[in-house]
Structures are given as structure tokens and as C-alpha cells.
Design a protein around this nucleic acid. Structure first.
Lengths: 172, 172
DNA sequence: ATGAATGCAAAGGTTTTGCACCCCC
DNA sequence: GGGGGTGCAAAACCTTTGCATTCAT
């Protein structure tokens, strides 16, 4: 096999898209809106219509998405909005805590998702690219103990496990 | 503050570059060489001189480095080698397990490092960008228990904590 | 009125690809 | 000899930036 053609995907039999996160509740949406508002006030920013539209698209996302995907989604709903504006607001929403950069997919692209109240970490299936979420309190508390010992105060973290899933295992 | 000028760095007083990892031992270096050899054989790849040179530069790295940094380092030692070749070999070395993509820095760039026998995770200082390493067996075992329950078999993982350090704390 | 936000186009930076030529086995 | 590897240049891609204009307060 030549260097020029390294495989990028190793498909397994896992059913696709079986993992849609639940949509935001009305309360969560309101909470995020207030978060954005507070950030805008704190930073003396304006409340623009365009930002409102982008926010609307963003909080409608249940899955993880890349920058270009967000650009496309925004553009689909509001064709007048260009990439530059989307990226400027993407960064702002990250800073405001409305979004978070949750992981890097196996192609090395950043994936973003809406910041929810309950934190979670990720498992990426190396076969079918499915992304699952997990939360284990014990891990977090051990992590915080380590950080404290090192003299740090955590702001956020990214814990991603890349793994083969049982679907592949069965075929080996 | 305008959207166009979001701050990217918040310097703290931590002394820079206080954290150099130790260089590879001769044994480790040999082990990596064999790993590469095995990979080349398994994939029916050739042993080229250029790849050897790049390997040489790579195993001389003690710190984390980005793609462009590796390009520059290789070029400095071997000016005839271009970016395309470096990137092709970077990917190959990742696939061979000689390197690993260890984390994404706060600018969103991937950082690579030599794969060592002892696994470790990372803390990134949000103030001075220092990168520290930690290893906590308890975290790993909890993680593996979770993965098993979900029906996955871990291949590798990335656990990065972004945090403020005590140096900043003291000044607040 | 003043600074923030947008839209466009252009630039920037990183990584990949096409292709002719060379090297390894 | 045949496939793998390299080097160069060009392309592809994602993201940021400059600037004139519009919007929010």
C-alpha cells in the first residue's frame, strides 16, 4: 500500500446515527440566552440581529458540529450571512460559554457542541465514527485531586477515548 | 471591546520552559526504530533515506510540537526535504505508533509527541501555556471500566485539562 | 455620535494532492 | 521492473483580517 493512500475509515457494522442527543429544553434554551446576554453586557457588546439568528441555529443543534458545518447550517437558514460572521460569532459563543469545543475528531477537526449543565466526556468509535457520551464522577474527582496537587484550578477539560466497538469485535 | 480583538493569551508569572521532558534513552530509541520497521514490513513499505532522516529528527524531540514546527525542524537539518514529505511521514509515524497526537493547544493546533512506554495525560496552563504531564492510575482504570460497560475496547485516549495556575492565583 | 457588527473579498496558514522522477526490493 | 517514495508546485481547506458600510445604543 502506498503512502499516498492511507485508509481513513474502518467501517464496522454499528448502526449509524443511533445516538442523537436530546434537544434542548425550553428552560435550557432560556438559560443559554441569558448567558449570552450577560456576556454581551459584561463585554459592552451589542445585541445584533445576525447574532440572534446564529444563536438560533446553534441552540437547535443536538449533535456535535465542525466550523464548516455550522457555516453551512447558518447559510441554509439565512443565506445572507457569510463565513466570517459565523466564525466571529462561533468564537464569541465559545467565550460566552454557550458553546464548547468538545473534541477533535479523527480527521483532526474541532467539534463544537452546546454547553449543557451536566458535563460529559466522549468515546469515539474508530470504526464507524459514532460519538458516545459518558460521565463518571470518580474520574472527575480524581482529576481534580491531581490538579490541586499540581497547583492548578481547572477551567475545563477534554477527555476523549478512541476505541473499537463491539460491532467490529464480533467480526474479528 | 470589539469582536475583532478578542484576547488570545493571559500571561501569568510562571517561569517559562521549566518543563522539559527527558530525552529518549538509547533503548527507547531502538524500540521505536523497531516499531517503525515492523510497521513498514507489515504494510509492505520501503525503508527510505528520507524517512530515516525524518525519524532521526523526530526522536530527538523531547517536547510537543506542531506540524509546521516539525517541518521547520526537518528543513533545518535537511534542507532538501519539503513539507509534503514531512506531512506524509508524520502521518505514517502516527499510524506506526512512533508518534502520537497528544493534545490540541489553546490555539486549536494539534501537538504531537514521541510515543513513550509510560502513558501520561496533560494539563495546559491557560495563562502561560505551559504543558504539564500527569498520570493517575485510578482515572485510567475507571475509564476502562466505563468503556467496557459501553462495549468498547480502548485504543488510545486524550485527557487534557485546561486550567489556571497558582502563579495567576497569587496575583488575583 | 460612537463603537460594535456585518459582508464581502482577499489573505493567511496548514495540510493534501498531482505528477514526473527516483529509489528500494 | 514495479510499486513505493520524494520533491516541487499547485490546490484545497479552514479560518482570519481589512475595509467600507450598516447597525445598536
Amino acid at each position: 500500500m502506498s503512502l499516498n493512500r492511507l485508509p481513513k475509515a474502518y467501517p464496522c457494522g454499528r448502526p449509524r446515527a443511533s445516538r442523537k442527543a436530546r434537544p434542548l429544553s425550553e428552560a435550557e434554551r432560556t438559560e443559554l440566552e441569558q448567558k449570552l446576554d450577560r456576556y454581551q453586557v459584561a463585554q459592552s457588546l451589542n445585541r445584533s440581529q445576525t447574532r440572534g439568528k446564529i444563536f438560533g441555529v446553534v441552540v437547535g443543534q443536538t449533535d456535535h458540529f465542525t466550523g464548516p458545518e455550522l457555516v453551512a447550517k447558518v447559510r441554509k437558514a439565512h443565506s445572507e450571512i457569510g463565513p466570517a460572521t459565523v466564525y466571529r460569532n462561533l468564537r464569541l459563543l465559545l467565550d460566552a460559554g454557550v458553546l464548547r469545543e468538545s473534541l477533535t475528531d479523527r480527521e483532526g477537526q474541532s467539534l463544537y457542541e452546546v454547553q449543557r449543565a451536566e458535563h460529559h466526556d466522549h468515546v469515539v468509535c474508530l470504526d464507524c465514527r459514532a460519538i458516545l457520551e459518558f460521565h463518571e464522577v470518580g474520574i472527575e474527582s480524581l482529576q481534580n485531586a491531581v490538579l490541586k496537587k499540581l497547583g492548578f484550578r481547572e477551567v475545563h477539560h477534554s477527555h476523549v477515548v478512541y476505541a473499537h466497538c463491539e460491532y467490529r469485535e464480533r467480526r474479528e
